[in-house]
Design a protein around this nucleic acid. Structure first.
Lengths: 196, 196
DNA sequence: GTCGTTACATAACGAGCCCTATGTTGACCG
DNA sequence: CGGTCAACATAGGGCTCGTTATGTAACGAC
């Protein structure tokens, strides 16, 4: 990789990271192009050369996250040796993400709200979630048996994880780890049957 | 009530309704004061005379919703005669709200995102959710026994309802009524014990 | 070494935004 | 029925934003 290509790649990564941070903290509409560029140590000219528009940066951000999200789920699979352990690990990954602060949940909601106004964004999100649902289904395969297609485990588990994190943001004390784990186990029991 | 007071009340209600609709469809940042006033059949001058600022309208909106949300939960209590019926009714109330379109869920998420940037908005939301949690706890009282304080039913049920609605927005086909009811029953079973 | 090209930086424009200051019309009160 | 005030409407300022057009310095192939 030549020095020009290397610098370009660094700039792109910095812009994506700054975009994620500012979209999460100030909202997609509230984060200005100039502020994002400045946070990345560049100017708006660089952003437009890389992504063409503010929405272009947003879509690039969605693409770059596909791997990160499903990879996080797969990583927990290797570590956990029982369903209870896996449930606890999944909740830890959501409530206390390795990302540092909990900015990714805020960003996820920003994307969700934006998807309500843009069909293209909705399709991006749909692809991301479909992959995550499949990953959950695959990971829980060894422990539970999936009955009919109508009661998939993946969507239910991810729905509860997101909802619990929402409640925790509103009132951190009410969603204890104990509550989260109990609810997650309940959902699993409700949507699948344990394999002996 | 004099004719002046009556007109003022109508204007206030129209502005609140228009604000809710536009905040939900275009986002809080994306809905302009002029657009809200026009949708209400008034001008921005009326909005500033009533609420002082755009954020003032938002907070007034939050206040006016406290009763509506918890009232909806309470209304389902009277109709349902079994836990299963109640669960199905709750899901219907979320997935196919009497409001007509599903704009209120979008608005709820807009408020949530906004609360991430404003502590005052977060406190408003916290009060609203606390009331809703209590309502769920009270309504489920006849059917389940609440064990320790650490595993409250209310926050878990509302978390799942919101999460399921999010998933359904991304991909309407994946969250079937059957899946939603099964997951809700699972959460109830996981966080409480049935009486008798 | 030259020169086209790449990877940005700079400057500026036009649109849209929230808000304020002021005007206007009708309702209430004596 | 005249005066006062409430309930808006109108006009515009000041600012921010997304985007574009243009400049520039470093790079890389020959």
């Amino acid at each position: 990789m030549t020095r020009q290509e290397e610098r370009r790649a660094q700039t792109r990564a910095a812009l994506l990271d700054a975009g994620a941070a500012l979209f999460a903290t100030r909202g997609i509409a509230g984060a200005s192009v100039d502020a994002i560029a400045e946070a990345a140590g560049r100017t708006s000219g660089a952003l437009y050369d890389h992504f063409g528009s503010k929405e272009g940066l947003l879509f690039a951000l969605l693409e770059s996250w596909v791997d990160a999200a499903t990879a996080a789920v797969a990583a927990e699979q290797a570590a956990a040796t029982s369903l209870d352990e896996w449930v606890a690990a999944m909740w830890r990954a959501v409530s206390d993400p390795p990302d540092g602060d909990g900015r990714w949940i805020a960003l996820e909601h920003e994307l969700w709200s934006y998807a309500n106004q843009s069909d293209e964004a909705r399709r991006y999100l749909a692809r991301r979630y479909a992959a995550a649902w499949d990953a959950i289904d695959a990971v829980t395969g060894p422990w539970v048996e999936h009955p009919a297609e109508a009661t998939r485990v993946g969507p239910a588990v991810i729905a509860l994880l997101f909802g619990l994190e929402m409640m925790r943001r509103v009132d951190p004390d009410v969603v204890t780890d104990q509550l989260a784990v109990a609810a997650l186990r309940g959902v699993l029991a409700g949507t699948a049957v344990p394999t002996t």
